[in-house]
Design a protein around this nucleic acid. Structure first.
Lengths: 175, 175
DNA sequence: CCAGTTATTGACTGATCGGTTCCAAATTCG
DNA sequence: CGAATTTGGAACCGATCAGTCAATAACTGG
C-alpha cells in the first residue's frame, strides 16, 4: 500500500511491489490477480484505516469544532513531516480519474467523510457550538472539499503558516 | 499538453506524444530533449494560459466577490462537462510530488494566484465589499487551498449541487 | 544549378513493463 | 509412509518503454 501511496499506480512497477512485499512475482499474481486488483485492495485498506479513523474521531467527538481543528492540523503536520505521499484518496482521484472503479471507491469514501462531518456538525449545532442558521450538510460538503485542497497544498506548498492559517479561516466559515 | 493534462506524466507514452503532436519520434527529441522536458514545458504553458487568465480576471475585477464566485463556478462547469482532466496543476502536484522542479513550478503558480486573490480582496476591503477585520492575505491563502479542493472534488464527485454549495459556503468565509 | 547546411525521418536499441509457465519444495491426507 | 495436492519461485514471454542514430530530404547562400 505504501508504495502506491507514495509513488502512484503508474510509477510503481511490479518489481517494486515484489521487492516491497517480500514475495516473488508468481505469488503476487496468485494472491492478487493483477496490479490493478492489488491497487484496488490497497486503496480499500487505506480507506478502512485512515478515513475510518477520521470518521470515528468525528463520531466520538464531544467538542466538535476543536475535534475538526485537531484533525485538520494533524494532517498538516503529516504533510509537513513528509510532503511526498500526501493522501492516497487525493492521489487516486487525480491520477486515476479515468478509471471508474477507483473514482467510485474514492467518491464513496468522500461521502462517508461528509456524512460523519454532517453528523458531528448537527450535534454541534444542537449544542449551540456553531451558527444555528447554517445547514450541517452544506458545511460538511464545504469542509470535505476544503480538506482535499489542504492535502494538495500540503504537497505543493508544505508551509506551516500557510496551511494552519487556511485551516483557521475555513473553521471560521462555521460561524 | 492536453495528453499530459488528461493522462498524467507516467500514463502518457512517447508514442502517444508522437501521435498527438503529429511529428515523428526523432523530431520530438530534437525539439524537446526528453519526455521530462516536454512535460515541464507543457506545465509552463498551462500556467501561462490558464492560471494567468484567472489572475488577470482577478486583477481587472471591479466587483471582487462576484468575480471570484464566477471564476469558481466556471471551473465547476468545466469539471462537470468532463471530469477526467481536472486541473494540470493539481495533477502535477499530486503525481509528481517527488520531483522538485515540478513542485517548484506548481508552488510558484499557486503563490501568484494567492497574490492576485490577496490584491483583489484588499481592493474589496477598501470598498467595504468584504469584512474589514479579515486579512486579505489570509483569506487569499484559504481560497487558494479551497480552490485545489474544488478541483479534486470535481474529479472525484462531479456533482453540481455539492460543488456549487461548497463554493457558496467558502465565499461566506469572506464575511 | 549546386555545394553545404539544417531538419526530418523511421528503423533500431537495450531495458523494463505486466503477466505466465512450469518445476520443485512443502504440505496434506489416506 | 507415500500419493496427491497446494504453495512458492525463477526463468521466461511478447509488448512496450524512453531514447538514439545513420540516412535522407529540404532548404540555404553563392
Amino acid at each position: 500500500m505504501k508504495l502506491f501511496w507514495r509513488q502512484g499506480f503508474e510509477a510503481t512497477s511490479t518489481e517494486d511491489l515484489v521487492e516491497g512485499l517480500g514475495i516473488t512475482r508468481g505469488s503476487l499474481y496468485k494472491a492478487f490477480g493483477s496490479k490493478e486488483q492489488l491497487y484496488a485492495m490497497a486503496l480499500r485498506r487505506y480507506c478502512q484505516h485512515h478515513a475510518a479513523a477520521l470518521i470515528e474521531m468525528l463520531d466520538r467527538a464531544e467538542q466538535v469544532r476543536p475535534a475538526i481543528r485537531a484533525a485538520l492540523l494533524e494532517l498538516v503536520e503529516t504533510d509537513l513531516a513528509d510532503p511526498v505521499p500526501g493522501c492516497l484518496l487525493v492521489n487516486a482521484a487525480t491520477e486515476r480519474s479515468a478509471h471508474p472503479d477507483t473514482v467510485q471507491q474514492v467518491s464513496r469514501t468522500m461521502g462517508q467523510i461528509e456524512s460523519a462531518l454532517a453528523g458531528a456538525l448537527e450535534r454541534a449545532r444542537v449544542r449551540g457550538d456553531i451558527a444555528a442558521d447554517k445547514e450541517p450538510r452544506e458545511l460538511a460538503q464545504f469542509l470535505t472539499t476544503f480538506l482535499q485542497g489542504l492535502r494538495v497544498m500540503g504537497k505543493a506548498r508544505a508551509d506551516r503558516a500557510f496551511l494552519e492559517n487556511s485551516v483557521e479561516v475555513a473553521l471560521g466559515a462555521l460561524d
